[in-house]
């Protein structure tokens, strides 16, 4: 399957990845190969097969609505590059 340079740049942008021209060529070829391999699945006859999202036929892994002990702000923020007033500091986002 042929993947264009534009498609690679589009997907990279969605994933917030910077890729240079050399990487774009390489990734286009690799992703093309992966998709061609996945295309093999198209050959399988799926007539009458329900679309599946899980390999195992399980449903309803549910939890009762009971509060558990909290980790606490200190632990939650332990690996934050920057914090202030018990909150994560990030570059300003508007909206």
């Amino acid at each position: 399957m042929k993947i264009t340079k534009e498609e690679i740049l589009y997907v990279a942008n969605l994933a917030r990845l910077n890729v240079d021209d050399v990487e774009v060529e390489k990734l286009a070829a690799q992703i093309g190969d992966i998709l061609s391999y996945v295309d093999t699945l198209e050959k399988v006859d799926t007539d009458g097969v329900e679309p599946t999202t899980h390999a195992i036929d399980l449903t309803n892994a549910l939890r009762e609505d009971v509060v558990h002990p909290h980790l606490g702000a200190e632990k939650t923020l332990a690996n934050a590059p920057d914090e202030e007033e018990n909150m994560f500091v990030v570059p300003k986002v508007v909206g």
């Binding site: 007033e85 018990n86 994560f88 500091v89 990030v90 300003k92 986002v93």
Partner: peptide, 14 residues
Amino acid sequence: LNHDPMRPISLVNL
């Protein structure tokens, strides 16, 4: 998100 009025930062409360 809490946007700082003076500095170019936002504070995140989860």
